[in-house]
């Protein structure tokens, strides 16, 4: 008997399924699962106010997330905002830029750009697909225009997100995300650890700084 048969057989026996091929009615199971998601407001924190983008902006800079935030009017303003941030940090205008056409088409004159982050990259910049107001999370989907390592290798992670893509709650992301990408990364602040005596330190393995650029569009 294969391990698969052994495990499934033991599970079925434990559940008292009369015949090995006796599956629960899939439609009934699905209906029961769906019922468990009813009235989501009863089990999630309420947002302050009604504007998700406002709540997101407040959340991102709160101690719970601990990121910094800058606002721009349009995508075209992003290179200027990135320059402001790098200047403020005393960093050169050197950037691993996510190869998203929406970003690559901007005017990056004066920047030295790379497509992929180096192991010791100082700064990387990307565009999140969504923001989530409840938690202050940025959501990236891996794909031909988004590398996963771009969010993890740099010391400074700079991420833009459009105000129109800010979702109120985690469930709202589940509703709009579509077919699962290879990696869906929900990023909520910079890398941190409490592994030494419970004291909180940033920049454990991933970025030490997260800077969010909120695009009004």
């Amino acid at each position: 008997m294969s391990a698969r048969d052994a495990v499934l057989g033991a599970v079925k026996a434990a559940l008292g399924r009369s015949r090995p091929a006796d599956p629960a009615d899939p439609a009934a199971v699905a209906a029961e699962a769906l019922a468990l998601l009813a009235d989501p407001d009863a089990v999630r924190p309420a947002l302050p106010g009604t504007d998700a983008a406002v709540a997101f902006a407040a959340r991102v800079v709160s101690p719970k997330v601990g990121a910094t935030l800058d606002r721009v009017e349009a995508l075209a303003d992003l290179p200027g905002a990135v320059r402001r941030y790098l200047d403020g940090q005393g960093l050169p205008h050197l950037l691993a830029l996510q190869p998203d056409p929406a970003l690559q088409g901007l005017d990056w004159a004066g920047f030295e750009l790379r497509d992929a982050a180096l192991p010791d990259e100082a700064a990387a910049f990307g565009l999140a697909r969504w923001g989530i107001a409840e938690t202050g999370s940025l959501v990236f989907h891996s794909g031909p225009d988004t590398a996963v390592l771009g969010h993890f290798l740099p010391l400074h992670h700079i991420a833009a997100v459009r105000a129109s893509t800010i979702l109120p709650h985690l469930e709202d992301y589940a509703a709009v995300c579509g077919a699962a990408p290879r990696n869906a990364n929900l990023i909520t602040g910079a890398s941190g650890t409490t592994d030494i005596e419970g004291s909180y330190v940033r920049g454990a393995h991933g970025p030490r700084f997260l800077h969010v650029l909120l695009v009004a569009d």
């Binding site: 190869p99 794909g143 996963v148 993890f152 290879r182 869906a184």
Partner: peptide
């Protein structure tokens, strides 16, 4: 940990796909 969400919450689905930059 008393946080509302972990800093990095990732859903991994299958191996590298055609065109993917890493994975």
């Amino acid at each position: 940990t008393g946080a509302d969400l972990t800093q990095y919450t990732t859903f991994h689905c299958g191996p590298k796909r055609p065109g993917d930059l890493d994975g």
